[in-house]
Design a protein around this nucleic acid. Structure first.
Lengths: 338, 338
DNA sequence: AAGGACGATGGGAACGTACCCACCCGGAAG
DNA sequence: CTTCCGGGTGGGTACGTTCCCATCGTCCTT
C-alpha cells in the first residue's frame, strides 16, 4: 500500500465518468462545465486525493510558478546583516498569496554564479529578484537580455533601466546628518559603503548635501569607504581618527559598520556620544544592543521585499508592463549614541 | 531575433546528424557513444547554445533536483535569529556542489502550512529539510507518511525516527553551568526555551545535570521558561529575580533571550557580571555587542546546515539509506558577562 | 566460414498536463 | 418543422525529455 501510484488526471476522469478535458476545466476554474459534471469531478478528486502534477503542467504552459531570489554576497554578510533576512520575509509574504515558490540562490563565488545563469537558462524560474547589486554586475544585463522578468532591490545606478525598489538613501542620510548638526556637532565625518554600489553613493551624497546645505564643507578628508562589514567599519573609523582627530560626529552607512566604529572609538577612549556622536543606517537588531544603543536610519526593508515580489509577479503576468521605480521613505530613530 | 525559440534536443540531433537518444546520452554522460558522435553533438550544443529543459526532464524522471528548506517560525524569529541565516548558508553551500535548487519556505500561519503540504504533495521537491521542530508538530510525520525524504535540524524528541542533526545541547549547557560554578557562583538560575521543543528541554537538562553533579539542588524555582524572544527573556529574568532575589548567575538558552535578560538586570541595577553572571547560547552576532559582551555556548550552525543537506541528498539518492543521527560538539566562548 | 557477442545507434512510447478543434444536443428564431 | 447558435464535452496532439527495445555492424571465437 505504501508506494501507490499517484492518481493522474486520467484516473480522476475515469472515476468521475467524464473526459480529461472536463477535469482540467474544473481544476482551472473554467466556467464551461455543468454543475453536475463539476460536482462529480470534485468528488472524484476528493476521493482519490488527487493533486495536479505541477511539473507536467509546467511543461505545457512553460511556467514554473517559482521565482528566484538572488543574494550575491560573500559569506559573511547574510549572517550579519538582518537586511537580507528581512527582504526574504517580505518576499515570502508577497509570494505566499499567489502560490509562487521561492528559490533562494546564494551567490558567493564564480562557480555559484555560473550555476545561477545556467539554472536561469534552463527556465526553472519565471522571474528573478536581485538584491544588493553592484554597479558593474553583469547579471542584471544578462537577465534583461534573456527577456526574463527581473526586479531589483536597489539599483545599479540612478539610470537603472530595470524595475527596482529602494529606500530614500540620500534623504535618510541627510536627515541623519542634519540631526547631528542640530545637536551642535561641528565636524561630521562619514563611513561609506563600497563606492561601486549605488546605495553607498546615495548615502554619501545625502551626507554631502546636508553638510553643504548647512554651510559646511564636505571635505574628502571626512570620508572613509568600507565594505559594510564590522571589521571594515573599525578600520575606517581608525583611519578617520588619524586624518581628522578633531571630528565630533560620524555618520556610518550601516549599523554593522557602526558597531565596528563604536568598538574602535571605545578602544581609543573616545566617549560616545560625549566626544563623538554616531549615527548608523538600517535600524537593525544590532542597533538596540550596541554600547551605547545606536541612533539609526530605519528603512522599511520588509516592505522593499514584498514590493519587489509584487512588481515581479506583475511583470511575469504581463511582460509589457511598464518598468517601475519605487522609492520608500526612511525614518530616523534616535537613541543614545547621538 | 528576440523571441527565438529555444533549441530542443531534436534540433540538436538534426544539427549533429544523429538521433535524439544519442544526444541524450552525451548530455547524461553515458559511455555508450562513439567519440565521433560525441564530438558532433557537443559542437551542435555549443553552436545552438542548447540547454536541456529541466521541467521536461523532471516529468519523465520524476525528480526535480530541488529540495525545500522549511522554516516554521513566527515572523519575528527569522529576523532576529542569526541561527536561521547560518543554517541557510550551510545548506546552500552543500547544495551548490550538486546543482540542487533550494526552495525556501517560511511557514508562519495555517494558510502557509496548507500551501506547503500541497506543494509537497505536488512533488515539486525531492526532499525536505525541517528546522526548529516542535514536539507535536504534525509536519514531520506527514512527510514521513508521504515517503518523502526528510531530514531535521534538531529533533522532536530523543526518540526521533527521522534523520536529524543537532548540536550537543545538554553538553553545551552543562559546560556553561560548570563554568559559572567554577567561577564561584552559588545560585545558578536558568531561562529555558519553550518546553515543547527538544532543544529547550535538552539545554534545561544540561543545566540540571551540571548542578546536581556539583552537589547543588536543581530547584524548579530556578527555572523560567520563555519563547526564545528578547521580550520573553526580559520577562523571564524579571520573574526569576522576584522568585529568587539572591541568584548570582543565570544560564540563558539563547543569546537573544540573554540580551533581554541583560536589559532587565540593568533596569534593576544589578551589575553584570559582578552581581549576576550571565551565559547565553548560540554565540550569535549579538553576543559580541551586548553590554557587557556575552559569554555564550557556540554551536556549529552552518555545519548543521550543510550536514542536513548532505544527508538529505544521500537519502534522495537511495531511499533505503539508514537513518542518521548526528550530534555536533559545542564550545564555550567566554566574554565579560561571566 | 559461420555463429555469437557486444558496442553503437535510433525509433517508439511514456511521463501528465493544457489547448485546439470537432462534435453533440437542446432551445430559439425563421 | 427546419435552421441556427452556443453551451457542454471529449479525443487528439503537443510540450521536451528519458528509457526500453530492436537493429545493425564488426570483431572474436570455434
Amino acid at each position: 500500500m505504501e508506494g501507490r501510484q499517484r492518481p493522474t488526471i486520467k484516473t480522476v476522469a475515469a472515476r468521475a465518468g467524464v473526459g480529461r478535458t472536463t477535469v482540467s476545466r474544473v481544476i482551472n476554474g473554467s466556467e464551461l462545465v455543468s454543475e453536475q459534471a463539476r460536482a462529480a469531478v470534485l468528488a472524484a478528486i476528493a476521493e482519490l486525493n488527487y493533486v495536479p502534477n505541477s511539473v507536467a503542467r509546467g511543461l505545457v504552459t512553460s511556467r514554473t510558478n517559482s521565482v528566484a531570489l538572488v543574494i550575491p554576497e560573500s559569506e559573511s554578510r547574510l549572517g550579519s546583516e538582518p537586511y537580507f533576512s528581512a527582504v526574504i520575509r517580505g518576499v515570502s509574504t508577497a509570494l505566499a498569496e499567489t502560490r509562487t515558490q521561492l528559490q533562494l540562490v546564494l551567490v558567493r563565488d564564480q562557480a555559484e554564479r555560473d550555476q545561477l545563469t545556467e539554472s536561469v537558462a534552463e527556465r526553472r524560474v519565471d522571474g528573478v529578484l536581485l538584491v544588493s547589486v553592484h554597479e558593474h554586475d553583469p547579471l542584471p544585463g544578462l537577465l534583461e537580455d534573456m527577456g526574463l522578468p527581473t526586479v531589483l532591490a536597489g539599483r545599479r545606478s540612478p539610470a537603472e533601466s530595470l524595475s527596482h525598489v529602494h529606500s530614500d538613501n540620500a534623504g535618510g542620510a541627510a536627515t541623519a546628518v542634519s540631526h547631528l548638526l542640530a545637536r551642535g556637532r561641528r565636524t561630521v565625518a562619514t563611513i561609506s559603503g563600497p563606492l561601486d554600489m549605488d546605495v553607498a553613493r546615495s548615502r554619501l551624497q545625502g551626507w554631502r548635501e546636508a553638510l553643504e546645505k548647512a554651510g559646511h564643507e564636505a571635505s574628502e578628508r571626512l570620508v572613509a569607504a568600507a565594505d559594510f562589514t564590522e571589521e571594515g567599519g573599525e578600520a575606517a573609523m581608525r583611519s578617520l581618527l588619524e586624518q581628522v582627530p578633531g571630528l565630533d560626529a560620524v555618520f556610518v552607512a550601516s549599523d554593522v559598520m557602526a558597531a565596528g566604529a563604536l568598538a574602535e572609538l571605545r578602544r581609543q577612549e573616545r566617549s560616545v556620544p560625549d566626544d563623538v556622536a554616531v549615527v548608523g543606517f538600517d535600524d537593525s537588531i544590532i542597533a538596540r544592543h550596541t554600547n551605547p544603543p545606536l541612533t539609526s536610519v530605519r528603512q522599511p526593508v520588509e516592505e522593499i521585499g514584498s514590493m519587489i515580489a509584487h512588481i515581479l509577479l506583475k511583470e511575469i503576468g504581463n511582460p509589457e508592463e511598464p518598468r517601475q521605480r519605487v522609492v520608500l521613505p526612511t525614518e530616523l530613530v534616535v537613541r543614545e549614541s547621538s
